[in-house]
Design a protein around this nucleic acid. Structure first.
Lengths: 121, 121
DNA sequence: CTAAATAGTGCGTAATTGATACTTAGTACC
DNA sequence: GGTACTAAGTATCAATTACGCACTATTTAG
């Protein structure tokens, strides 16, 4: 098994696996990856695609993903002013491993729902 | 592309993909899956393996995963009193798709670190 | 009844997330 | 120049969620 043990918070921070997972398995990151999979999008497009994300949170997530090298941010001076976001090679590489997880989610949604109903009884 | 659009919170709650992802991509769930991959473990063993999780949070996560059918909880009346946790078939099925993500994290840790250093400059 | 070992809870605090309204930037029109 | 229009964020404060620590509960041996 991979070593994910961490006796202290400091250990956890230096564990490569944990460090990476914490950057990509939040509530919004995977949705942003999916939205950008096939083509670059502007800020407003991303916001509309995800739908229920607030601009503040979208900005935070995009900054973090840019900082970690998953996507690039390009400013096109207008009119109209436009900023586009695009996955990097590493971003596309990550999408290859996360998509099976997304498909798994789609395939197993009903089993989980069934388990939940059964558990309640 | 898969549809992950949600115009309202209610939409988001009923989106199968989002619903499943929210249950398995938290801070601790993947670590718990990894710890249980090869064999069942008792509460205290899990706590020591993960290392920096508090009992309260471990309990919460185990309850949630049990409720959703990813693992089973078995009480062995003592002495000493023991409670063991074990992945279900669905739990093992999920581990198959999440392990590539974990390996990806291990493989790409340095690229991300490099991107971060470059971005800072 | 007391003790020892394992499993879990309760409660107050800290960090994150969220909603809403506001600010900045670039350009065109008057 | 001044006003307006559109896109891209920010600021502020409230609400939610997660965390840390100490405490409680259960089971059986002596």
């Amino acid at each position: 098994m991979l070593d994910i043990t961490a006796l202290t918070k400091e250990d956890a921070a230096t564990c490569p696996v944990r460090s990476v997972l914490s950057k990509v398995t939040g509530k919004w990151q995977i949705l942003i990856f999916l939205a950008l999979e096939d083509e670059s999008h502007r800020f407003g497009e991303l916001k509309r695609t995800v739908g229920d994300i607030t601009p503040r949170v979208l900005t935070e997530n995009l900054k973090s993903l840019e900082r970690d090298g998953f996507l690039t941010r390009t400013v096109h001076s207008g009119p109209p002013l436009a900023v586009s976001y695009e996955l990097t090679e590493m971003g596309h590489s990550f999408i290859k491993v996360i998509k099976p997880v997304v498909f798994w989610a789609g395939d197993n949604f009903q089993s989980i729902d069934a388990a939940r109903k059964k558990f309640a009884s």
